[in-house]
């Protein structure tokens, strides 16, 4: 029965969203611009996409980035689920220290994180490349994955798991059979977030990567420094399309779950 938004409320939200989306829209529109100049509309064209697919270095970078993203996001999500369980269910001594580490990672400037990880790999004598970037990204995204899963676990009714144990499941089985299916959307969201952050990271990758493991953001960064290149608009549009599709799909699945819940079809 809350009161509706005032005109001021509506204007704030609309302007805010316009501010957030205008640059993205411009980027997408100009990826189809035949002209090389951003201010001139030279007609619709997909030539930059064609050019992109002939750019061997760019394609290599995309391939490296995707592999790093999938692997690091998976490590981060597994560790994140465990960490979230530990934070929410509590009861062990290192809980505060773990929470402290998670939140510190969340806000730590990337240059510091990148530099410190690099020094670790140098000290350990690990050659820099694919694996060092993957480990570094797993560390960065672990914190985000934990926060996402933890938010869901906090509203999870422990009674469900206890009921499963009461019905004869050992604790680990109760977790796999009851808790995990219920929190699955949050786990998926955590993985998506970790994957996206890995896809997106320039700074940490620059510090911890080595020859032969140039990621897409590193490649883009060196291109951007040379000036505006419509090929970047094309690859950006593809990335935006990929992520937007994923996010909207997750959103729609969640909406469906919500509706089921409201109709009393789903689980809590």
């Amino acid at each position: 029965m809350g009161r509706g938004p005032s005109a001021f409320n509506i204007v704030s939200v609309v302007l805010g969203l316009a501010f957030l989306y205008a640059p993205i829209v411009i980027l997408v529109v100009y990826s189809f611009n035949a002209s090389r100049l951003v201010t001139v509309w030279g007609g619709f064209s997909t030539r930059w996409y064609a050019a992109l697919f002939q750019d061997r270095q760019m394609l290599d970078a995309i391939w490296v980035t995707l592999r790093v993203g999938v692997l690091s996001a998976t490590i981060a999500t597994v560790l994140g689920v465990i960490a979230a369980l530990a934070l929410v269910r509590g009861g062990f001594r290192g809980r505060l220290a773990l929470a402290g580490g998670i939140y510190a990672t969340l806000v730590m400037p990337e240059v510091i994180l990148g530099l410190s990880l690099l020094l670790l790999f140098v000290a350990a004598g690990l050659p820099r490349g694919f694996w060092t970037v993957t480990l570094s990204h797993a560390t960065l995204t672990l914190a985000y994955a934990t926060v996402v899963v933890q938010a869901r676990l906090r509203s999870f009714d422990v009674g469900l798991e206890e009921a499963a144990q009461d019905l004869g499941c050992p604790p680990w089985k109760a977790f796999v059979l009851v808790t995990l299916p219920v929190i699955a959307p949050a786990v998926a969201a955590a993985w998506m977030l970790a994957f996206t952050l890995s896809l997106d990271d320039l700074v940490i990758a620059s510090f911890t990567s080595g020859p032969g493991a140039t990621t897409l953001p590193m490649r883009l960064y060196s291109q951007v420094r040379l000036g505006v290149d419509p090929k970047i608009n094309a690859v950006s549009t593809l990335l935006i399309g990929l992520v937007a599709t994923g996010v909207i799909a997750v959103y729609l699945v969640q909406q469906r779950d919500e509706r089921h819940k409201r109709l009393g079809l789903g689980h809590t």
Binding site: L27, D200, L220, V224, I232, L239, V243
Partner: peptide, 8 residues
């Protein structure tokens, strides 16, 4: 927008 590339 946060899900789309920061660099971009």
């Amino acid at each position: 927008p946060f899900w789309t590339s920061f660099l971009i």
